[in-house]
Design a binder for these strands. Structure first.
Lengths: 219, 219
DNA sequence: TAAAATGTTTAAGTAAGCTTAAAAAAATAA
DNA sequence: TTATTTTTTTAAGCTTACTTAAACATTTTA
């Protein structure tokens, strides 16, 4: 499985999680920074290998075979993130960038070593679930985005769904870290802003941020 | 720099260490398991990029630019070996296999993190020197091969120069490990065998082995 | 609902990294 | 030193993963 194929399949998988199965070549092309033509081409080739279903002008859907490959790559990516974060105390942005490369050159053997070393973690430092060695995500994620959180409730940070350096820098500066606790002070429905309290600081977040910060309510 | 290019350059570098600058396309082709034609082709391309000097039918020689790339890849390989060996307690054969893949997808940034984490080691678990971040090997290696060792002297194991699984299995079973101490009992000049004593066991090694086990004399 | 804009596909072409087959040079043996 | 073997090079061709340009289908908008 080449790097190009693995990234292509991974992109479909992730895209279909977000955008309710409407992944066409164009969206993959944009994400991978290749031409639409190249994406269509690749889709056809992968369909021949039974990794996805392709019909002209229709959304791409991974077969179970394709999905397995996606989950295996994602597993390696997230294991590396967890490992690098713990071992070298690297930033969320740095671990993502390195994992993006290492994920394709990691044997299942080494992935198991890493997983076992870390005590088979269920989540990576972004809060994203780590598939097990069979490619299953057993953990059910019941977190909600901050934009849907309720005033005067307390939450723990469950996921930081981004790979933008500036976002992570902001998070690091303000204690927005997987597992940390915050309180929702006010939801401004007109401006779609959310005021939170964390580490005795009050922060106003706009929707760009509240959409990608996921939290779990504390009872 | 692609994987193919990095491996090609690395092979020339290593080959020239052993065989006194007589690396022609054929020997690289054999090592990388590609055709002679492919090796000639690659040599020409890399000459255009000023990574090596190519003249028809003449041995290949890296330019300083090419050598720098070789040393950078070798650095990453050996750092990974040291790191995997320490962290996951993997066998010498396993760490080599994994490092062979990871070395090409490791940023200088991550290499520095690994090096610093390990306390900037000068040798990997095979006893091979680790180039520094500038691509320099500062450590002078004064070890000798066991075939040239002297009877009744005591040595520490300095290098195990192989990547053969069976060899490493044998070494692991018999305490032949980087840093361990052994005594040379007898040199059989006819059969080119060497009898050593290690961990209270006596072992008879043939020349295939004594050629690739390097040791330092204990005064 | 027709026109315009957008997205997808096809077609033709490129570079990297290989292959096999044959020609040419170099190394080895008789 | 010539003949044979081996190695290197050239030539032609293949696959993967891209590109741009143009044709075509779909979606949007007026």
């Amino acid at each position: 499985m080449s790097v190009a194929v693995e990234n292509f399949i991974k992109t479909i998988y992730k895209n279909n999680l977000n955008s309710v199965n409407n992944t066409k070549p164009g969206s993959i092309a944009k994400h991978l920074e290749i031409s639409n033509a190249a994406a269509t081409d690749m889709a056809k080739k992968l369909a021949e290998k039974d990794l996805l279903n392709y019909e002209k002008y229709k959304p791409l859907k991974l077969t179970s075979k394709g999905e397995k490959i996606a989950l295996n790559v994602i597993r390696k990516h997230r294991l590396w993130e967890a490992f690098l974060f713990k071992t070298f105390d690297m930033s969320l942005h740095d671990i993502h960038r390195e994992a993006e490369l290492l994920e394709h050159e990691t044997s299942n053997f080494l992935a198991e070593k890493i997983s076992s070393y870390l005590g088979h973690p269920k989540f990576d430092p972004h809060g994203d679930p780590i598939p097990n060695s069979k490619g299953e995500i057993t953990t059910t994620d019941i977190s909600i985005s901050l934009e849907k959180s309720l005033e005067n409730k307390t939450y723990t940070i469950a996921r930081l769904m981004s790979d933008d350096k500036d976002f992570f820098d902001f998070c690091a500066q303000n204690g927005l870290k997987y597992g940390n606790t915050l309180e929702v002070v006010k939801q401004f429905s007109n401006t779609k802003m959310t005021q939170i309290r964390i580490n005795n600081n009050t922060i106003l977040l706009n929707q760009d941020f509240t959409k990608i910060i996921y939290v779990n309510e504390i009872n």
